[in-house]
Design a protein around this nucleic acid. Structure first.
Ligand SMILES: [Mn+2]
Ligand SMILES: [Mn+2]
Ligand SMILES: [Mn+2]
Ligand SMILES: [Mn+2]
Lengths: 216, 216
DNA sequence: ATTAATTTTTAGTCTAATCTAATTATTTTT
DNA sequence: AAAAATAATTAGATTAGACTAAAAATTAAT
């Protein structure tokens, strides 16, 4: 397994959660900042390794072997992120890129020891569940903020992306995991949300709202 | 900087400590388990980057830029080894290969935070000094065991290789960092050493003796 | 049902890192 | 000083992963 193959598998996994298991070449290319011909090449290779189901022109999804691998890579990524925030005192917006490197270190034993050292954490710094040694994990019963209505109250339990700019923005407007907030109003024109958080009223765009996970 | 370039720089550094700054193509190839033509290619590349001084057929040594890089890579390698042994409870014979991977993670900040998290250790699990953030480090005033004479007494303060088989063997014969030992006899035929350690007399080969560092 | 637009794949090129086989330099022996 | 042995380099191939440009398949519009 090369790093590149692993990155493709992780990305296909991520996209298939959004697109109900049907992932296209162009999507993968866009997300990995590569070009469609590179993706086509890689899909052939992953298909030959039985990690994906692939028919030319028909899109792609993971086999169960591919899915297990994706979950294992996700486990590694999130455990390293947990380590970076909790041990090395990184902020949650700084860890994704380093974890992208650390996740490719090859040693199952290393990850299981790291897991133990960290106290078998269940949730990463962005509120995402960390698969255990058997690949088992549970999502909280949360919704993204854009699904809430006026006067709804909830608690932030996670984010859907760990993009640095997005997380820095949340820091700036004082939203973090655990924050309680209330929907004051929804702007009919641009779907932006007026929310109350820590006794301050703020406006956030629909795009931002979509990426915040709330438990009511 | 690719991983491969980094591995060559580290190896040239290691060899130039032994061979007083004159490193040959074949040596590098042998140590990196690669072939001389691959080394020749890489030497050209490293030379173009001003990391080594290289003249065809004349061997090679590091520029000061290359040396700084080598020391930085050594710092990363040894800090990760310290982490693996002291946090993840690995045995000293298990950590080298994992550290070979971790050392290539690109983030200076990560290493400086790791250093702080570990309490700025000065010595790695094999008794080797860990360069600080400025690349400064000190060797103990130790000699390898083969330089001692009969009846000399000393304490093991380090090893010269972190080869798994070598370290496993030391574990088996009860030698670890801190062990006190005494030279009982030296076999004139094969230069093997008879030593007393923890009230037991053992025989070790010249090759093993050469790789054990002693402080008298 | 054609035509047009979009998506995906193929064809061919490039770079990094490796290899084997052949050639050239250097060093050692005679 | 010439021959032999050793060491290092060049030549040419290969593999992984990426790219551009061109072709083919699919989907959307008229
Ligand atoms: Mn992440
Ligand atoms: Mn990655
Ligand atoms: Mn090591
Ligand atoms: Mn390495």
């Amino acid at each position: 397994m090369t790093n590149s193959e692993e990155n493709y598998i992780k990305e296909i996994y991520k996209l298939s959660l959004i697109n109900s298991n049907h992932v296209t070449t162009n999507e993968i290319a866009y997300e990995l900042s590569t070009k469609p011909p590179s993706v086509s090449d890689m899909l052939k290779k992953l298909s030959k390794k039985k990690l994906i189901n692939y028919e030319k022109y028909k899109g792609v999804n993971l086999t169960s072997k591919g899915q297990n691998l994706a979950i294992y890579l996700t486990r590694k990524h999130r455990l390293w992120e947990f380590f970076l925030v909790n041990c090395l005192k990184y902020n949650w917006d700084e860890v994704h890129n380093i974890a992208e490197q650390l996740e490719h270190v090859k040693s199952e034993d290393l990850i299981n020891r790291l897991d133990k050292f960290l106290g078998f954490p269940k949730i990463d710094p962005h509120g995402e569940p960390i698969p255990d040694i058997n690949g088992v994990f549970n999502y909280l019963d949360s919704k993204s903020l854009d699904n809430l209505g006026i006067n709804n109250i909830g608690k932030v339990v996670g984010v859907k992306t760990d993009d640095t700019d997005f997380l820095k923005y949340l820091d700036k407007i004082n939203i973090s995991i655990g924050s309680k907030l209330k929907i004051i109003d929804i702007n009919k024109f641009d779907q932006s949300f007026e929310i109350e958080i820590k006794n301050q009223v703020r406006n956030i765009s629909f795009d931002v709202a979509k990426n915040i996970l709330i438990l009511c």
